[in-house]
Each structure stands twice: as C-alpha cells, then as structure tokens.
C-alpha cells in the first residue's frame, strides 16, 4: 500500500467523545504509523507538571520527598502547554516565566479534633492558565496530605513542561487502548482454546465495528492490518481530542525532521555531521 498516494489518505472516524475519553477508528494507514501515534500519545505529548518543590515548612507526618512526589503527580491544566518553553530551550538559568509556572501551597491545621486535608485545591498558581484541574465545584480536589492541629505545610512548587518519556507525571493519558483485527482474521495471534472458543473468548467491543469473517473466507496471508481501534482516556490535564491532535502534530514534526535529515544527509552542510536531534 502506498501510504503517500492521495487515494490512500488515512482516515479517522470518531465514535465517542466525552470530557475524559475519545474512541476512534484509524483506517488507511499501516501498523507502524498507528503504533507511533499510540506511543506519542503516551510518552511524548508535552504537559505541565510540578518538577521542583522547595520546602519552607513541613511539620506533617509525611516526608518531604514523599509530598514532593505526590505534588508532581497532580495533573495541571496543560491545554496551553505549547505556550510555554521547554526548560532546556529557555535562556534563563533556573526558572522563569517563559519556561515555568510557580505554584504555592500553604496550609496549616488549626482545627481541634479533626484532621485537615491538604488537596490540590490548596495549590495557588501564579499563572491562571496552568492550575490544578478540578471536576466542577463539588470536586474536593486530590488529597496530598492530612494535617492535625498545629501541623503546617508551606512549599513553593515550580511546574515545568515536559514529556512522559522523562517522567510518568508528564503523561497526559491514563491508558491507550489499541486494537486491530478483533476477529483475528490476519492470524497474528493464536487463541488458547480448551473447549469452546465462544465460551472462553468473549468478543471485543470493537468487534461490532469490524467485519466478521465469512464462513468460507479464504485466509489472505498477504493482508496487512489497516483498521485500528483507539480509545484514549485522559488524566485530566488535557482534553482527549487535544491529546490526539498534539500527538499528530508531534508525529508530523518527527516525520518532517526525518525527511529533512534524509535530504540533508545527501549533502552535508558545511561539511559538518547532520544534526541528529529528532525532536
């Protein structure tokens, strides 16, 4: 299949789109492209997450590094993550407004008898674009620690842009479901069956959208997968459709940089080694 012929343009059919998940079928492309999309969504879509935590005060029962770790995993709204620079691309020495967002957390428990919950709602962001996500006004926020009377946490957090390749906290999605060939027509796999396939192997939900094999269908050993069922669930920092779109953007960037690399490889510029940065 010629991927680049206009007749074979990849197609996406969105089947479901909610605030937290998107389901679509990707067709007319090959496996490597589909998997690349999956991989990028998991590990290379940039988001914002707390990266550095400076403790001014921590009298809670939890250790500093433990709280810092919890803070890092809190999803921040990253819809406008592309408006911010990667720290490595920034000219500043430490952290500046161009490449980071400062969030502050200062909670003290003064109540008698009950514990006070420190949640992501207590995080005060210096930039309204990048705040901890909440699900409506009723959302209690993500629990960070519990304080009893007299205990106090005061920290300064620096959130930075990054990708999940570096640390899982930058991943925008919880899980990416990916399937092709629900009927195993390509015979890539071999189902373990002891008695009855129907009883032991319930059908995948994607089977409804695929074409069941005909009774007399002849096995086509040259067939290639070209229908890919995706389902992406966001952790909240981005809308699911944005994850997909950003992933496509990233994919394009990658492909074009490869193309550039291939061309520039023919004639080395200034006799130097071509740049190997694929990002």
């Amino acid at each position: 299949m010629d991927l680049f012929s206009p007749a074979n343009k990849p197609e996406i059919r969105i089947q479901e789109l909610t605030g937290e998940r998107i389901r679509f079928i990707l067709t007319n492309t090959d496996l490597s492209m589909a998997n690349a999309l999956r991989r990028i969504m998991i590990s290379e879509v940039a988001t914002i997450a707390i990266d550095m935590v400076q403790f001014d005060l921590n009298t809670s029962v939890l250790a500093d590094e433990f709280i810092a770790h919890r803070l890092g995993l809190i999803p921040l709204d990253s819809t406008e993550a592309d408006k911010i620079k990667y720290p490595r691309d920034c000219n500043c020495s430490g952290a500046c407004k161009e490449c980071s967002v400062e969030l502050n957390l200062h909670v003290k428990c003064t109540e008698e008898d009950t514990t006070k919950d420190v949640t992501s709602k207590d995080l005060v962001s210096h930039d309204p674009r990048f705040t901890p996500i909440t699900e409506g006004p009723k959302d209690a926020g993500i629990l960070i620690a519990k304080l009893r009377k007299g205990q106090e946490i005061k920290v300064k957090c620096i959130a930075k842009k990054g990708v999940a390749k570096e640390h899982a906290k930058w991943s925008p999605c919880a899980a990416v479901a990916f399937e092709y060939d629900p009927f195993n027509k390509l015979r890539h796999t071999h189902y373990w069956i002891e008695e009855d396939e129907k009883k032991e192997w319930p059908q995948s939900k994607n089977a409804n959208d695929d074409f069941p094999p005909l009774d007399d269908e002849i096995f086509d050993f040259t067939a290639k997968p070209n229908r890919f069922y995706f389902e992406i669930e966001t952790i909240g920092s981005m809308k699911p459709e944005d994850i997909v779109m950003n992933a496509f953007k990233k994919l394009l960037e990658k492909i074009s940089s490869i193309q550039m690399g291939l061309h520039s490889n023919d004639v080395p510029i200034n006799g130097r080694e071509p740049t190997r940065d694929v990002f």
Partner: peptide, 18 residues
C-alpha cells in the same frame, strides 16, 4: 483462562501467543 491477546509496545504488533 485469564489470557489476553497482547501487543508489542515497540512495534504495535500482536503477539503470536496470548
């Protein structure tokens, strides 16, 4: 039986065995 078809994370290809 507790089996599931799985895919290689690197190539995206379905494994031969569940």
């Amino acid at each position: 039986h507790g089996n599931e078809p799985m895919y290689s994370g690197i190539t995206g290809e379905e494994f031969q065995a569940d």
